[in-house]
Amino acid sequence: MTATSTVPSSESPRIEALDVLRGIAILGTLASNIWIFAAFIGSSGDPVTPEPITVAAAWLPNGKFLGLLTIMFGIGIEIQRQAARRAGRSWPGTYPIRAGLLFLDGLLNYVFVVQFDVLRAYAVTGLIVAFLLLTSERVQWWVIGIMIPLHLSMLVMKGTVLPSGPTKQTISMPSDGSLSGAQPSSYWDDVVGNLTHIGAGFSFGSEFFTIILMGVGLFLLGANLYRLGIFEPRRRILRRWLMVAGFAIGVPLDAFFAFVAPADSGGALARYGAAPIVAIGILAAVAEFYQQRRPGRIGRNLAAVGKMALSCYLLQNILGLIFQKNSASLPLFAEMDGLLGTLGLFAIISVALVAFARLWSRRFRRGPFELIWDWCYRALTRRRESAPAARPA
């Protein structure tokens, strides 16, 4: 059976759980990256929170929501492919232009905002997967079965062969729950440094390379889970098995690699190996939760962020960077408890994103960066269609 044989001919109804999951993934990546933005909180004060609690708080979101975001991108590409099929358009059609624009977004984000950007890797991975979706489902499952072990093998090799010291490019969770040893630098010094050493952001040892290897398997997995009907009532057994795999297997593995295994490879295997298994459980749990109910207040707030995921992803990085570059000069933050201050910063940025998304969506159908992206896409493709264009993510 080919990859296109199960696509319905009518327009598919909107799945509200998808927007909620996108919102969870976006705010979850903020929870993982917030430790870098809060680098100078508690740098000179005496911590109030015991160190094990701080370390556990940093570990909890690490990698899980990156994995969820990666799976959601794969689902998004499959939705775009099915939409193209229903509209009678060829696939991948103009998707390479979409991937190119996403890559440009990521490159600008990498140079001018933060080095821990995922959009560049998602653009390259999406382009690869867009063509793989032309193959049969059997071939796609074979690719998943090959890429995931290859990805895990590369994680072990990178941890045992390559230099293991954390850098600004690769760090996502501090080993001791803080970044108190970091030194402040000016914004423009960072930009110049990013441009000067831009090749490091695409190197074998960078997160860019790791996410591509991980992403091919997870993108295809997300696309095939969507095609299997993971959001449909009839797939309750599938969702339950995925929750068992995610929480009963993924969480213990993640904790083992993070706290027990050797640090050289254990940290990477936790973030990029076990954490994506947990992400699958989160995906299935949210899909199951919304089978018999509509999103409530919390769900609607998360969905508002999810509907403008690109804008909220970029805005959270911009807000975090603004705080990071200004907090080092304020003794208040240096003397604050590291965990409490970091959680406070996460809460403030999250509330700001939700409020912005809710207010913006009252007047506009797309987020600000989505509008710019859509304008560029239509200009490059000379496309003027009445139906809304596919989302960039």
Results as ranks from 00 to 15, higher is better:
P8C: 08
R14S: 07
L18H: 04
D19S: 12
R22D: 01
G23E: 01
I26M: 03
L27F: 02
L30K: 05
A31V: 09
W35V: 07
F40Y: 15
I41V: 15
P50H: 12
E51I: 04
G63T: 13
G63F: 01
F65A: 04
T70F: 02
G76A: 06
G76Q: 02
G76E: 01
I79S: 03
Q82T: 03
R86G: 05
R86S: 01
R89G: 00
A99P: 08
D105Y: 09
L108Q: 03
N109M: 08
F112D: 06
V114H: 06
V114K: 03
Q115V: 14
V118C: 11
A121V: 11
A123E: 05
V124T: 12
T125Q: 05
I128D: 04
V129M: 09
V129H: 05
F131A: 06
S136F: 05
E137V: 15
V139E: 11
V143C: 04
G145I: 11
V161P: 00
P163W: 07
T167C: 03
T167H: 08
Q169W: 10
T170L: 12
M173D: 10
D176P: 00
P184E: 08
P184I: 08
V192I: 15
G193Y: 09
L195Y: 13
H197K: 13
I198V: 14
S203Y: 13
G205F: 06
I211H: 10
V216L: 05
L220V: 10
N224Q: 10
L228Q: 14
E232T: 14
E232H: 10
R236K: 14
R236P: 00
R236Y: 04
I237G: 10
I237S: 14
L238A: 11
R240E: 10
M243A: 02
V244T: 14
G246R: 12
V251I: 15
L253Q: 14
A258V: 12
F259L: 01
V260A: 15
V260Y: 13
V260N: 12
R271N: 15
R271Y: 05
A274G: 06
I277R: 09
Y290Q: 08
G299N: 04
N301V: 01
A304T: 07
V305K: 12
I318M: 01
L339K: 14
I348Y: 00
S350C: 01
V351W: 12
F356L: 06
F356P: 06
L359P: 01
L359H: 10
L359S: 05
R363V: 11
G367I: 02
P368T: 00
P368L: 01
F369A: 08
E370R: 06
W375N: 02
W375E: 07
C376E: 05
L380H: 13
R383H: 13
S386L: 12
S386G: 11
A387P: 00
A389N: 14
A390D: 10
A390P: 11
